[in-house]
Each structure stands twice: as C-alpha cells, then as structure tokens.
Simulated scan of single mutants.
Amino acid sequence: MVGETRLHVDHTPDLDDLRAVTSRIVESSPLWDRQQWVLQMVDATPQTVVIQVQASADDGPSAWDLRCDVREGLIRYLRDHHPEWLPRTRGEYHP
C-alpha cells in the first residue's frame, strides 16, 4: 500500500535537501515496508510549489500513520531549519 503526502512550500526549497530529510524520516520508520519511497515536485502555482512524498507500507493503517509521520517531520524540519521555505504571501500575479 502506498501513502501520499502533499505539502505546499515556497518556490525556493532545495529539493535535494528535502529528499535527504525525507530519506531519514522514511527509512528510520518501522512503518515503512522497505519497498519504495519518492519525493517529487508535482505542481506549481504563482504562490507555491507542491511537494509530494509517496512511501509504501504493509497495510492501510500503517500507510496512514507513515503519511502523518512524514508530514509532521517535514513541517518540523522546515519550521526549525528553513522557515523561509514555508509558503508566504506574494503580490498579485499578472502575466
């Protein structure tokens, strides 16, 4: 079973850094089934980009808990180490 977590972040994060943090979070979890995980930028808006993490677990309840742990871990990391990567209000976009 694959769980999916999405976060909106500012346009400025270093994705390699976020992948390294995600790797530590996922790979240290007893909920992860050791099959697969991935972090990708899956969307962009004028205000944010959307980061998606998919990670596999043995069953639905474990996938849910792993999703929550990944979200909490990434938000904690962003808050404590890179608050500038969190979404912020930007001016009107006029193409």
Rank of each mutant, 00 (worst) to 15 (best):
P46N: 07
E92P: 15
T45D: 08
V38P: 00
W85I: 07
V2F: 08
M41V: 14
D10V: 02
P30T: 02
H82E: 03
L7E: 07
W85F: 14
R79P: 01
H81A: 12
R34I: 00
Y93S: 15
T89A: 12
P87N: 08
W32P: 00
L31P: 09
T89E: 07
A55W: 04
L78H: 00
G60R: 09
D59V: 03
D14A: 14
A20V: 05
T48I: 06
V2S: 14
Q40W: 08
Q35H: 08
H94V: 15
P61N: 06
W85P: 09
S29H: 02
R90P: 02
C68K: 03
Q40E: 15
W37Q: 01
A63V: 09
I51N: 02
R76Y: 05
M1F: 12
V42R: 02
A63F: 06
R24T: 11
Q52R: 14
A57V: 08
S28P: 07
G91I: 03
D17Q: 14
V9H: 06
L86W: 09
D17T: 14
E27Q: 07
Q40C: 10
V53C: 11
P61L: 06
D80I: 02
Q40V: 14
Q54C: 13
Q47K: 10
D69P: 04
R79H: 10
H81L: 04
P95N: 11
P87V: 11
L39C: 06
I75G: 03
S29N: 03
P95W: 13
A63R: 03
D69V: 13
T48W: 13
M1S: 12
D58K: 05
D33N: 14
P13A: 01
P46M: 04
E27Y: 00
T89G: 13
D43W: 02
Q47W: 01
S29F: 01
A20H: 03
D59N: 14
H11L: 15
D10A: 15
M1L: 13
T45Y: 06
H8Y: 10
T89L: 15
V9E: 03
T12W: 02
T22V: 03
W32Q: 07
P83H: 06
I25D: 01
L74F: 01
V38M: 08
T5P: 05
R19H: 09
Q47R: 10
W64L: 11
S62R: 06
Q36M: 07
R71Y: 10
V2G: 02
P30I: 00
D14L: 04
T48L: 07
I25W: 01
V38F: 03
P87W: 02
R88E: 09
D16R: 12
W32V: 02
T45A: 10
V53S: 04
Y77D: 01
H8P: 02
S56D: 10
G3K: 03
V42T: 15
L74N: 07
E4D: 04
